[in-house]
Computed example of a mutant assay.
Amino acid sequence: MIIHTILFVTDLYYPAKGRNYYEEDLFLTSKLRETFHLVICHPEDIEAFEDHTDLIVFRNAGPVANFKVKYEAFRKRVIAKHLNTYNSLDGKADMNGKEYLIQLTDAQLPVIPTIDTIDHLDELPHGHMYIIKPKDGADSVGLKFVEKDKLVEEVKAHSKDTLIQPLIHFEYEVSFYFIDKQFQYALYAPDKDKRWELKEYTPTDKDLHFAKRFIEWNNIHWGIQRIDACRNEQGELLLVELEDLNPYLSLLELSEEKRNNFVEVMKDSLQKALKG
C-alpha cells in the first residue's frame, strides 16, 4: 500500500485575534499522520519541499498579503510544475483577493453591497458610516470604519485597491463549512460583540440553500470552504466573504463526534485530490 506524503503549510506562530491557529493545526496534523506521511513547513518555505511531496495542503498560513511576493511566485510554480494543491487553486473567491465581492454585488446575489470607487457610492444603500478594507486583506487587516464625509480622504479614487461597503446592522454572524461541495457543520457567534466565541448552529433548509449557492458559484475541484454570512435586521442572510484558500475551521469548538467526522471526510477528500 502506497502512503502518500503531504506538505502541510502553516504558520504556527501567526498571532490571530481571538483564537490560536496552532492548536487547530496541531490537532489536524495529529490525525492526518495516521493516514499520510506528513511534512510541516512555513508558507514562505514551500519551494524547498514542494518537489518531494505528493500534495501541498495550504492551511492556517495567515493572510497571504504578509508574504505576497512569495505567494504569487508559488502560484506561478503550481502552474509551471503541475504541483498538486489542496485547496485546488481554481477558486474565484478569497484566494484571488476580494474583487469577487463586487462581481457578486453586480450579479445581485445576497452579499453585502460592495464597490471599489467612491464614484459609485450612489449604488450602495444610503448611510452615514461605511467600512473600507483592502482587496488583498484578510483577518480584518486594514479594515476601517469611516464616516461618509471622510471617504474621499481614505479611498484613492483611481487606484481601486480598496473595497467600500455600507455598515450593516446585523443580529449575528454565522459560518458554513464545506468539504468539496458537501456541507459539514455551521458555527455562529450569538453575541456579535464576541466574534470568536462560537457555538454550533443548526441551519435551516433556507440557510443551506443560501450557502450552497455560493459553493456552486465558486465550483473549486476540491478543498475546504467557509461561507461567512451575517443575519441582518430583516432576518435575511448576506455574504460577508467566501474563504476558499485556507479557512480557519474552529475545529476545537465542535463536539468530538463532529470533529472526528470532519477529519474522516477531509481524508477522503485528500485522497481524491491525490488522484488529481
Rank of each mutant, 00 (worst) to 15 (best):
Ala80Tyr: 06
Tyr71Ser: 04
Asn20Phe: 10
Glu24Met: 07
Leu28Ala: 00
Tyr71Phe: 14
Val57Ile: 13
Thr29Pro: 06
Tyr22Ala: 14
Tyr21Arg: 12
Ile56Leu: 06
Thr5Ile: 06
Thr35Met: 01
Leu38Gln: 10
Ser30Met: 05
Thr29Gly: 06
Leu28Arg: 01
Ile46Arg: 00
Leu83Arg: 11
Thr10Asn: 11
Leu28Asn: 00
Lys70Tyr: 06
Ser30Lys: 06
Glu47Cys: 01
Arg59Asp: 03
Ser88Lys: 10
Phe8Gly: 00
Asn87His: 03
His52Asn: 14
His37Thr: 15
Glu72Ser: 12
Phe8Ser: 01
Asn84Gln: 06
Tyr21Cys: 07
Lys17His: 09
Arg75Pro: 06
Ser88Tyr: 07
Phe58Arg: 00
Asp11Glu: 05
Arg19Phe: 08
Asp25Gly: 00
Glu50Met: 13
His4Tyr: 13
Arg59Ser: 05
Tyr22Val: 08
Thr35Ser: 02
Cys41Ser: 14
Asp45His: 14
Phe36Pro: 02
Ile6Tyr: 00
Ala61Ser: 11
Arg33Ile: 15
Asp45Cys: 13
Leu55Asn: 11
Arg75Val: 09
Phe27Ser: 05
Thr10Phe: 11
Ile6Leu: 05
Lys31Phe: 06
Phe8Asp: 03
Thr53Gln: 09
Asp25Arg: 01
Lys70Ala: 12
Glu23Asp: 09
Arg59Ala: 04
Asn66Pro: 08
Val69Asp: 11
Lys17Tyr: 09
Arg59Asn: 02
